[in-house]
Nucleic acid binder design. Structure first.
Lengths: 159, 159
DNA sequence: TATTGTTATACTCTATAACTATA
DNA sequence: TATAGTTATAGAGTATAACAATA
């Protein structure tokens, strides 16, 4: 069966059925997350931030004196995985680590003025791009989606 | 300031503010996705499947003769990343690769009887666990969430 | 020239065990 | 004995360049 000629670069005419998957919430969630994640990476690139470094920076700015273990808990990542993130932010002079007087094991994290400036600019960009994504979506639909996502998160299985 | 004694294993009393993040849809999405993803991994573990191998298996079962490039497109992953997935499914005798007569570059993917049996059992498990996650959520809320996720996916930026 | 599948490679995110220094 | 931070390491997921065979 001869293939019909195709314009180079044109996406091939495929219609792959995903009937048995598209009803799965996890599948829907993954696809949407991949889109958001790669777009967010693009949005944060000019600031040399990734989703994780951005999140850490926001949380340190909002919670002065935060300890690394508390931050890891809040970000729902393991403590070892936070080390490189904090090191990167510290090296770029966006956060500082101060020893806690009464517990010399811990560090109190503080955002620097440069960090605060950067997080404000990055947040503005993030919110602009979020708005673009959510444009055309009814506020009630978005609110319902938020509710569903929180419900999922709350139902986390442990162990 | 002396720290109050704490029961070992007890989670520390922290209340980290995420006021400036929790309104971000991407942040909500990431947290929910992480929960679903790790739970789904646990659900698929008895079948020795991951989300990616499960997805590939379902799509091959549903689209006999599918080519690898079409499958990669459908899964929204790059072609090179599909190779190991198909190799794994083929090694486990769950899918077969047949040469396409009129195009000797391509492979036509087919599910084996063993693959079909496995995908049915895995799908039942996935659906059971999805139902557990979504339990207590109003159907309209779930529908709205699905709509929002599809909207996000549709709005994908390219390039 | 372009496409299919492949190899090689690199970067990111995640997870665990084990160490040090403190408590 | 337990906790804070760290090191080392491994496993996944994702992305790009370049290749051989074929169209």
């Amino acid at each position: 069966m001869p293939e019909r000629p195709r314009i180079p670069g044109e996406s091939p005419v495929v219609s792959v059925s995903d009937r048995r998957l598209r009803g799965h919430f996890g599948y829907q969630l993954k696809r949407a997350f991949n889109v958001i994640q790669s777009d967010l990476a693009r949005t944060l690139k000019p600031f040399e931030l990734r989703m994780l470094t951005y999140t850490a920076l926001v949380l340190v700015a909002e919670n002065p004196g935060l300890r690394q273990s508390q931050l890891a808990d809040a970000m729902e990542i393991e403590r070892p995985n936070l080390v490189a993130i904090i090191e990167e932010l510290e090296r770029r002079l966006l956060v500082e680590r101060h020893r806690v007087p009464n517990d010399r094991r811990a560090y109190a994290l503080e955002v620097t003025p440069a960090g605060r400036t950067l997080v404000h600019r990055a947040t503005a960009a993030v919110e602009t791009h979020e708005a673009a994504f959510l444009q055309g979506l009814e506020p009630e639909t978005r609110a319902a989606a938020t509710e569903a996502l929180k419900h999922i998160e709350k139902g986390r299985r442990r162990g």
